[in-house]
Design a protein around this nucleic acid. Sequence first.
DNA 1: GATAGTACTTTCCTAAAGGAAAGTAAGATT
DNA 2: AATCTTACTTTCCTTTAGGAAAGTACTATC
Lengths: 115, 115
Amino acid sequence: MAQKKQHCDCLSTIKPVRDTLDVINGKWKLPIIISVGVGNDRFTDIQESIPGITPKVLAKELKDLEQHKLITRIVADEYPVKITYKLEPYADTLTPIIYALKDWGENHRKVVTER
Amino acid sequence: MAQKKQHCDCLSTIKPVRDTLDVINGKWKLPIIISVGVGNDRFTDIQESIPGITPKVLAKELKDLEQHKLITRIVADEYPVKITYKLEPYADTLTPIIYALKDWGENHRKVVTER
DNA sequence: GATAGTACTTTCCTAAAGGAAAGTAAGATT
DNA sequence: AATCTTACTTTCCTTTAGGAAAGTACTATC
């Protein structure tokens, strides 16, 4: 019988990780969720709280996040019409991810400056 | 005094999160770390363990991960020359992130199929 | 009537990511 | 001598992400 070394299976981890990445992928989605979560609910406030984001990108990402049921766009029927963004409760399930990324980033900065 | 509503500050969270994303961004880096972490140490094994990855992309991502000191490329001075990839101990610090992403992805799959 | 603020959209462009297919260099095997 | 295996590289191409700048529609305020 020919010796045939096989690769180790890791699909049970890779698949769900990829599913998550498909949702929160990119440079801006998590920063937007963080900003809205902390209380920024107006377009301009969100924009100003995230350095470097342009209105075009923000508008596009907000639409993506709406489609994934992570954020709601609320149009208040007042004068003047007021548009606010809120996190869906489902977005709170991202908290462990956000903290894991935050902690790692803080530590990584130390590691890199000491290298 | 004019009423000037200001956006809420969330840079202390956004900045480290972005630092982390700069390192592990993209579709392939975490899957590669997972695969190598589980024992796949040869190029071909890693490639076969990650569905859809092409050799070009794998080669490029492995170089990126080497630069970030997350993976080492080891050339064994044997005949035939054998090249293996190993996780650096530093890559273990990514474990909480990987589990957070895995857990969320598993739950999200349930949520989406029930919707 | 002019200016300012809010929440975007539009246009145009560049860079990076990703993929398909084939090629290659070196040694090993038949 | 021919084929196989390993670890890639090369070429070519498409898609996606991202950014700069200006514009717009509406309302409010001076």
